[in-house]
Nucleic acid binder design. Structure first.
Lengths: 226, 226
DNA sequence: TAAAAAAAATGATAATTGTCATAATAATCG
DNA sequence: CGATTATTATGACAATTATCATTTTTTTTA
């Protein structure tokens, strides 16, 4: 079991507010494990017994609508915490989390998290701030999906992937999502997504090599997303 | 200056977690005032110096998109607190709040709120839970605006108005919004909104008397909204 | 490696929704 | 009260996007 004190991603989340003693305790109670691409971390409706800390890899936060279509609300990466909301409201998970890459995550039991929240004001405040930021993100997402066109939203989705995964040495996005998944981020039909990707390629804004996507004209993509 | 201890709406918000002493202090530091229909409580980008507690009346939480169109994200009514997120993240307001009825509100200065949060675990937790609920609401809103049709969203908007304002003795919604405002809740063009309202009337699901709207077949409206 | 399955791409078409123009009605104000 | 302005309503039309059918390409698996 790794020492949380030395964990690279701790500084990226609310966990940075924990004391040395708390970190030692955390190292003992946490559970570290691997998740394979495509695996479900938890499902909408699941009872959440703790919080997940993402050490490596990316997952998607997904919600299924009444007609069975997925929407990807957000990509979650290194340093993010998952499941805080459910722990705090004592409710079931309102979203599903599915790995889109192989992942390395730590699980922190609910009672330990609540303990930290109750005993460490600074940690408690960080958690609350994090939820506030998630709220701001969700609000912006909602606004974008209300008044932007599919093309504008696609541009934004590509920027989101860039933001959470970065690029390889050749400049290709470091995360390969299926057309279907990109469509679920954008909130459109797969075919529309495919067509618009082809259009962006024709405009020279992006390049497509099979499933790999390279952003060529970042500024144009940004201005497209507005 | 009214006594917060006896305030009718206190039980409806996180403020219910305050102690007697804290309430006495709150009564001294809060500022109570009236807001006229149409008045702006605060604007997107404003520095927030405190939190608003809604004692009476309704306001809309609005965000303007890059092309100048408004989206109404939520109706805020009696017992709700406004501005918590901005206080917690120490950022500026990310939304505007505009009265859609005459209102009675109390303003609680930022430092007092932060004081309560720092000293009262139970209050702090209630505030956090409230933010979590707002996050869940925003997520659902986003999903609805991603995959539901305008008609389904209109049905939902009418249910939202019913929920936050109720009906008068004749069964008409107790809040009169303009067609333009309803369209901003739905995220559609005013004309589309008008047409669909007419369609719902033709179907006998609602009745329209000038600006007044009566829900006749609640269950059908609910199943339309899904 | 061949066969099967899945994913991506493309075309044709339909449906939904937005936009612009204009008319009717209601509200406001001097 | 009449005139002006704002809101609501309706029609015609265009644009965007979804859906369905089919083909091509890629991936998986036997």
């Amino acid at each position: 079991m790794g020492k949380c004190e030395q964990c690279i991603v701790r500084e990226l989340s609310s966990l940075k507010a924990l004391s040395k003693d708390e970190l030692i305790h955390l190292a003992k109670c946490k559970d570290s494990f691997l998740i394979k691409k495509g695996d479900v971390i938890f499902n909408e409706g699941d009872v959440m017994n703790g919080v997940y800390c993402i050490k490596q890899g990316t997952c998607k936060l997904v919600k299924m609508n009444s007609s069975g279509k997925d929407t990807i609300l957000k990509l979650i990466t290194k340093g993010d915490l998952l499941g805080q909301t459910s722990i705090l409201t004592e409710g079931k998970a309102t979203l599903s989390a599915v790995a889109v890459e192989d992942m390395q995550v730590c699980f922190i039991p609910k009672n330990e998290v609540l303990g930290f929240i109750g005993n460490n004001k600074s940690f408690s405040l960080e958690v609350t701030k994090d939820v506030c930021q998630n709220l701001n993100y969700a609000t912006d997402f909602a606004i974008n999906h209300t008044h932007k066109t599919v093309k504008e939203r696609l541009a934004q989705a590509l920027l989101d992937v860039l933001d959470s995964a970065g690029t390889d040495t050749e400049g290709y996005l470091n995360l390969q999502l299926s057309r279907d998944e990109i469509a679920s981020m954008v909130g459109t039909a797969t075919e529309s997504c495919i067509r618009l990707l082809a259009e962006l390629k024709k405009l020279g804004i992006i390049d497509l090599k099979a499933k790999r996507i390279k952003i060529i004209k970042l500024n144009e993509l940004k201005s497209l997303a507005q």
